[in-house]
Amino acid sequence: MTDKNNNQDNKFLKHLKKNWAKYTVGILLIVAILYNYDRDPKVTQAVLASMVRHSTPLVLGALCGLIGERSGIINIGIEGQMLISAFAAFMTTAYTGNIIFGVVLGILTGMFMGYLLAIMSIALKLDQIIGGTVLNILALGITSYFYQVGLSMGQKILPIPLGKLADLPLVGRVLFNNPPITYTTFILVFVVHYILFHTKWGLRTRAVGEHPRAADTVGVDVFKIRYVNLIIAGGVAGLAGSFLSLEAVGSFERAMTNGRGFVALAVMIFGRWTPFGAWGAALLFGFASAMQTQINFSGALDIPYQFISMLPYLLTIVVLAGFVGRSRAPAASGVPYEKEG
């Protein structure tokens, strides 16, 4: 019994030893936030709320990417999936006047794009980088070609304060006063984590992403897992697209993703292919983006604004190089699976 306790203590210590940097940074961050909140609650809230907003499409995009990669398919077409979904969601809303239809169609469009990627990378065994690139260019072309002037969807999706929670200091405004897709994103992080690590489907997904042949030999249908996951992942990207056009902007513009799909890709790798990691990475990026805006607002730093503009990107590189380092992708991602015989 004591032996077991010892063992657990050891594990805990080992864990601490391995992750001390993370915890230290985390604690420091919380302290810093609370200190700032004490000094200037309004600005602190504003920055943190903005951080959440900046991070939402990135988290969704990264979730899309990691669901695919966990089952062995690299997806660099997130950008295209998001863009065309944003378009579909907006057009549907503009024509039907119903935002729910819009979101649903956005998600369905994303799923269809996921299905296309699945066909290309699973059935046709195209190189997966090519499959994703095809999606990106195709989405850019289709949305620009079919873009229509003068459509309007009316009001965009509004925040829903969550009762008393929204009145809490600091976290109320930041976490509990958001529009529905943002809430869904929070929930999705947990759901995807739960599915990946605590369900049968997740176990099989990870097996397929690491060693598809092993999964195959115990009767797991590798192709089915990959198809379904890519379609679901497409749906998540579709939600990201719906977020962009219906919740964040309230309109569609050509190429409105502006590279967010690629940043999401970076966020996914940064987060080591885990939902919480991706969330953390997206929040970090979002925080840096919000800080960049806030520095400009305050006018405190008298340097050319281009240098302030570099902040999120440089910070990402510094944190990545300094604290995160090497990460290990699912072993089978990028490799088409061939059944024997």
């Binding site: 903005s50 964040a248 502006n258």
Partner: peptide, 17 residues
């Protein structure tokens, strides 16, 4: 061409008062 950035930034400005 980045309406989302514009929206997020406006929201942050509004949060700033």
């Amino acid at each position: 061409t980045d309406p989302e950035w514009g929206a997020t930034t406006a929201a942050q400005a509004i949060d700033n008062g």
